[in-house]
């Protein structure tokens, strides 16, 4: 299928389009990096906590995203999705690798991610609370350090 269009037409339309966005289509209806087809908002808060935990731990250890991906042997794109996107449903293997790297409970990270439904929801609520106390800045503040210690505490095997 070829269409009839001139370069002049393209130029006239391009000049009026330069300052706007053009995207169209359903946001979450597609399978997103294999994880978001059936997006369940139930886990948004706990996934934010999971993302904040990974983010804070990485910064505490002064690791770039690439360095953590290499150390934990996980995919860089997935690591970024975990940190930045509460809609993202991580792979089980990735959570296992991160739990092993950070020396916390694999099962609890699974619960936070929504991959499993935790029987004990208390640690999820606590993790969400701690995560909410942290803010994103370049170095860990005393408050962030305290929030991170709280997260480590509730996500550790007891």
């Amino acid at each position: 299928m070829k269409i009839e269009v001139t370069k002049d037409w393209c130029e006239a339309m391009a000049r009026q389009e330069a300052d706007v966005e053009v995207g169209a289509g359903l946001i979450a209806a597609d399978p997103i990096f294999n994880g978001e087809a059936a997006h369940d908002t139930t886990f948004d808060e706990s996934r934010i906590a999971l993302g904040r935990f990974v983010h804070l731990m990485r910064r505490r250890d002064k690791l770039s995203l690439e360095a953590l991906a290499e150390r934990a042997d996980v995919d860089l794109a997935e690591l970024m999705s975990i940190e930045f996107d509460a809609h993202y449903l991580p792979e089980s293997r990735t959570l296992y690798q991160l739990a092993h790297t950070f020396k916390v409970s694999h099962k609890k990270l699974m619960g936070l991610s929504g991959l499993t439904k935790p029987k004990d929801v208390q640690y999820v609520e606590e993790a969400v609370r701690y995560a909410a106390r942290s803010e994103s800045i370049e170095t860990l503040s005393a408050e962030e350090q305290a929030a991170l210690e709280g997260l480590i505490s509730v996500l550790s095997e007891k």
Binding site: V5, C10, R15, A18, E21, V22, A24, G25, D30
Partner: peptide
């Protein structure tokens, strides 16, 4: 679905797009 490349999207880069006109075409 319609999407332009990231470098053509002002909202993402807060900079002028590299190329404009793809949406209209």
């Amino acid at each position: 679905f319609l999407e332009a490349a990231p470098w053509n999207r002002r909202e993402m880069t807060q900079m002028p797009p590299r190329f404009s006109g793809a949406g209209s075409i």
